[in-house]
Design a binder for these strands. Structure first.
Lengths: 170, 170
DNA sequence: AATGACATGTAAAGAGTTACATGATTCA
DNA sequence: TGAATCATGTAACTCTTTACATGTCATT
C-alpha cells in the first residue's frame, strides 16, 4: 500500500503518465525508495480499477500514446486514509541489507577497514548527490531531508568504527 | 541471500536449532531486521540441501525433537563469500515505509504535529529498548549500535521538524 | 482444566522484480 | 546506421508472509 500512497501523492499535485512518474522516481527518488517501472504501471492500472484515478489518453505526433492519470475524489480520500494509516503503523526499517556489518569481526581488521572505507565513500557520495538534488527535487524535499539525516548519521558512525578499528590495530 | 548470511553467521558462533534461532531473533533482532519463523525453518532446510549446514537430532524428555544445525566447511566459505558480496553491493535502504513523511504538508499542521510527536515517542522508546538490550545482545552489538545510530538521528530530525511546524504555526 | 511454552513445519496467497517484447522517433 | 528516447506493458520467477496444523509438557 505504501507504493500506492506514493503514487497518489504524486498525482494529487499534478496529473501524470506512467513514463513521467518513472522518470521522476529514477532521477529524484531512486536512491531513497524501491519501486520499479513495471510495478508502477501495474499499480496505476490497479488504482484505475479501484476508481482512485482516471485515465485519459494523449498523443503527440506519432509517439506512443500516453495514459495520463488524474486523481479522483475517491482517490483523494483513499490518499487521506492511507496517509494516516502510514503514520499509525510504525515499524522500524529492516537493516537486512546491511547485515554484513554484524559480522565485521569475521574479517581481518585490514579488510574490514577497506570495506568500511569504501562504504563510507559510497554513502557520502550519495549524500552529496542528494544535497545537490535538493534544489530541483520536485516536492520531495522533506523526504530527502529525512534520507539525508540518516545518511549523514551513517557517515559519522562509519567514521567512528573505522577509527576504532585503526586504533585497536596497533 | 542476506537472510542466509545472517543465519550462517549465527551458526558459525554456535550450533543451534530453529526454535532457538527464532527466539534470538524475536528477543534481540526483531526490531532491526525482518525475518519470520517459517522463513527461518525454510532457509535452514534449504541450506542443509546446499550442504552449508548439517543437521543432528536431539531430544530432551518427550519434548518435540530439535534439529540442531552445525555449519560445514562449505558453509563457512559460503559465509565468507556472502559477507564480501554483502559489502560490495551497497544499495541504500528503502524508506517506503516512511513515505507518509513526504506528504506531511497534506495534513493540517496540528495533526501533523500530533502524528510526528507520536512517532518521536515510538522511535525513542525503541531506542531506549535497544540501549537496555545492549548488554545481553548476543554478538550483535555492532549491528545494534548501527541501528541506534539511525534511530537517534531520526529522533533529532523529528524534533527539528516538529519545532519548525510549531513556529510556522504562529 | 486451560493456557502458554516447546518445536517443527505446510500450503496458499501476495507482492514485486527480472527479463522480455513492441514499435516509432530522434540524435550522433 | 546504430543507439538512445519515448511509452507501454506481459509472463514467469522468486521470495516472503499469513494462516493453519500438530502434539507434548509445564504452569496456574
Amino acid at each position: 500500500m505504501e507504493r500506492k500512497l506514493l503514487l497518489l501523492g504524486m498525482l494529487r499535485l499534478q496529473e501524470m503518465h506512467g513514463y513521467q512518474i518513472n522518470e521522476l522516481i529514477d532521477t529524484h527518488l531512486g536512491t531513497s525508495i524501491q519501486l520499479k517501472k513495471p510495478t508502477v504501471y501495474k499499480l496505476l492500472n490497479s488504482m484505475e480499477v479501484d476508481g482512485w484515478i482516471t485515465r485519459r489518453d494523449e498523443q503527440e505526433g506519432n509517439y506512443p500514446p500516453r495514459h495520463v492519470y488524474t486523481i479522483t475524489p475517491e482517490g483523494e480520500s483513499a490518499f487521506q486514509e492511507l496517509l494516516r494509516e502510514n503514520f499509525s503503523e510504525y515499524r522500524p526499517i529492516s537493516y537486512l541489507g546491511d547485515i554484513g556489518i554484524a559480522y565485521l569481526d569475521a574479517l581481518p581488521d585490514e579488510e574490514a577497514t577497506t570495506l568500511l572505507t569504501r562504504r563510507r565513500k559510497e554513502v557520502s557520495s550519495l549524500l552529496s548527490h542528494l544535497e545537490s538534488d535538493h534544489r530541483h527535487g520536485e516536492g520531495f524535499q522533506i523526504m530527502m531531508s529525512f534520507h539525508r539525516c540518516h545518511l549523514s548519521a551513517e557517515v559519522e558512525w562509519l567514521d567512528d568504527i573505522i577509527e576504532q578499528l585503526k586504533t585497536s590495530d596497533e
